[in-house]
Amino acid sequence: MTGEPRVLLYSRPGCHLCDDARAVVARVCADLGEEYAEVSILDDPALLERYAEEIPVTLVDGRQHDFWRVDETRLRAALTRPRP
């Protein structure tokens, strides 16, 4: 393990899709013993410009995995594969 979470969730406060995504990410990560980090796109102008219309966005191992909705089955599958 590198110490960095495998899952990164880009979100913003008050976003109901972000709340839904967070619940899925938290559940899957807890089940699999993985950690995740969450970053508000409002805290970074570049992230806000890039992801304003796509949030929530999840990245797994540094690569974009999902946006708008998190597919629990796909996320579990991605996290059961070894890190690249």
Rank of each mutant, 00 (worst) to 15 (best):
V39K: 12
P84G: 12
F67L: 03
L79G: 03
Y10R: 14
L32D: 04
H65C: 10
H16D: 06
R83N: 05
L47D: 05
P5K: 04
D66K: 08
V70H: 03
V70E: 11
M1N: 10
H65V: 06
P82N: 05
R12C: 00
M1L: 13
G33D: 03
E49W: 06
E53P: 07
R22Q: 12
A52Q: 15
V25N: 03
F67D: 02
G33V: 03
D20Q: 12
A30C: 00
S40N: 07
D19K: 14
I55R: 04
L79D: 06
A78W: 04
S11E: 12
P82K: 06
E34R: 15
T58E: 01
E35N: 13
S40R: 13
T58V: 08
R63G: 01
V25E: 10
R76Y: 02
D19N: 07
A78G: 11
E49R: 10
F67M: 05
P84A: 06
R81E: 14
L79H: 11
P45C: 02
E54W: 15
Y51D: 12
R6E: 01
L79W: 11
S11W: 09
S40Q: 01
W68T: 10
T80M: 13
E72L: 02
E4A: 15
P45N: 00
P82M: 00
V57T: 03
D71S: 14
C29H: 08
V24H: 01
L75W: 03
R22I: 03
L79R: 13
A46H: 06
D71I: 10
D43A: 14
L47C: 10
Y51Q: 01
T58R: 04
A23G: 00
